[in-house]
Design a protein around this nucleic acid. Structure first.
Lengths: 351, 351
DNA sequence: GTGAAAGCGCTAACAA
DNA sequence: TTGTTAGCGCTTTCAC
């Protein structure tokens, strides 16, 4: 070990708490300067072939693993991206994370994942904490945040991509689609097909802004297309987004609004539960009651009565968000990007 | 800005590329030493109430967000945990990540997520890269790694938890269950129920070691319990783990081994597809053909013929892995822990 | 209870 | 092509 530059005399105890190999160790081993080792790692083209080989052998022999925290500090680039999702285990967001990772990972970026649990305060806390990591980019699901969270993100000087929603006033970049339009399109569809008594089912007490927008759009569109018709909205209850809750949803709909002829669910999960429950009860779908979902899960097209639903760009949101971030991080663009990935109506047998 | 200690004369250009507020800035603002600000953040109890208040106000007014990379470098603790899963978007692993996050996040640890895509080389690369972040803990799915990956993890001095499998020779800690035992239990069950011509279906060409173990255990147990019976193994094809592949699986089974009376699938997803396909074809389940799954997805119990399957501790694996890590990271334990979370047979209608 | 000095392991800027 | 110097923003150690 040799550290010619630093005062490593017999005077003080060193703080070298880590026992891992450092750049200096490799440099000493190879008989070159630390800077050269650094170059070998980051811009090998600028190093002569012979030095390159020597140093690379030293790296291998010492088992050197560069400390990225130190690199981060010195270069002011962390090569990390922070992603905030409502829940990691909901497949739609897992897909988005996957897409994000698929784009960023090949470029050397690592992903920090945080789960907001649909809680804005929690989101704010996570943003604050993640900002301390100095990520090179931030991806958040949703466009509604606490004022403080918004200010934090805006003032952070870090490229931000909001996703999964649509707004005229994004913090920075935006990659999403209009949940309102999608929901309205479903009402239009039901109207065209001749249904007369639509109901909406979802997790109403939750803080899921996407589900909320779907509901609001449902209400508005129903008021427009079905004048005089009452606005039927049913709560899926407190079990979160589950098939069980979907079953309960059907039961409640039947009880509260027996006249319903088409039930539009805020998620395919609910719709699947509702469909299964209808089957158990011998209710003919779509004859007696039509059912629509939202999200187009793989299962939906395979159900005994394939589900009419809205296809959302789950994975694509992640991919495009990653690309938008990459452009900013690599300095190819300095302008915010807004990308409407839209949705598709998948008309199948259930409605 | 005042930095009395450092040579900030008129001589050189400073490297202050970041424009964010630093500890020194806060200290200057509050009229105390940087060290005091650091104490306010990390051990407020050691600071006098009045200083505490002054400094806290300064933090708020300057909008200071501590740079954790610097903290990491100085303290040699990153407050991060790296998690490597085969695929983020497979719900079982998403559940595990969720459990991990639920335990670690309240303690201030942030999660790095990496996706190995069931590729050992890729896993090794990710381990190498993540190690550079100096995580305080590492969680990996699986117990099979390249020799280099194993060496890297063993030599890293970082607590490691392997998960989702079982082995007598873990790298460090282990939180999982025996996929072999689970698969064998299913064969036992089929045997007891009087089935005579079992077949196994799964993604055989894949590099999923858990599916592989399930298959091997199936073969061994069938050889023991059904002497003379041929070993029926069917490949789900190249479509990955999907319902579509499950449908194909049923078709192939019917074609290759028409005598099969119970089809045991490596995943509930396949089993769901097989069941749905059987329904479409008017095959009576379990009368003509019984079907078993693996994993106990929420859907499985809701299918028109509820699925007989193995319940695996997806979320619990994550939680317990987090706890094991926490013990090590907080210095409460220095011994490796091995935890067999086991599995349960969920006997339902499909077999 | 507070502060000064040193240094964590790396990179940027500059010089040779 | 390679080396030197200074410093990233924090924590540790030690002194007061």
């Amino acid at each position: 070990m040799n550290r010619p530059l630093k005062g490593r005399g017999a005077d003080k105890v060193t703080r070298r708490s880590t026992n891992s190999v450092t750049l200096d160790d490799v440099a000493a081993h190879a008989g070159v300067s630390p800077q050269t080792v650094s170059r070998v790692i980051r811009m090998p083209d600028l190093v002569s072939p012979s030095t390159l080989e020597t140093v690379q052998r030293s790296i291998a022999e010492t088992g050197y693993v560069p400390n990225l925290a130190a690199s981060n500090l010195a270069s002011n680039r962390s090569m990390t991206v922070a992603a905030l999702v409502p829940a990691v285990s909901y497949s739609v967001f897992a897909d988005t994370i996957h897409g994000l990772d698929a784009v960023l990972s090949p470029k050397g970026y690592h992903l920090f994942i945080g789960s907001t649990e649909y809680d804005r305060e929690r989101e704010e806390g996570l943003i604050r904490a993640f900002l301390g990591r100095r990520p090179d980019g931030i991806v958040v699901v949703g466009t509604e945040h606490t004022p403080a969270a918004r200010a934090l993100l805006k003032g952070s000087n870090v490229p931000v991509v909001e996703t999964w929603n649509w707004t005229e006033d994004p913090i920075d970049s935006l990659v999403g689609f209009s949940n309102r339009d999608a929901s309205a399109a479903l009402v239009d569809f039901a109207h065209e097909r001749g249904y007369r008594h639509p109901a909406f089912g979802g997790w109403l007490t939750g803080r899921d802004s996407r589900a909320y927008e779907r509901r609001i759009a449902f209400e508005q569109r129903v008021a427009e297309l079905f004048p005089g018709e009452s606005i039927r909205v049913v709560d899926a209850g407190t079990q979160g987004i589950s098939i069980e809750a979907g079953r309960a949803l059907l039961e409640r709909t039947l009880h509260e609004y027996p006249e319903t002829d088409v039930l539009m669910c805020a998620s395919d999960i609910f719709a699947t539960g509702a469909l299964l429950e209808a089957e158990s009860r011998g209710i003919d779908v779509p004859g007696q009651l039509a059912i629509c979902g939202f999200g187009d899960f793989e299962l939906s097209r395979h159900l005994s009565t394939p589900l009419t639903t809205v296809t959302t760009p789950n994975l694509e949101i992640g991919r495009r968000a990653g690309e938008v971030l990459l452009q900013r991080m690599l300095g190819e663009s300095s302008e915010p990007t807004t990308l409407d990935l839209s949705f598709q109506l998948a008309a199948r047998d259930s409605a």
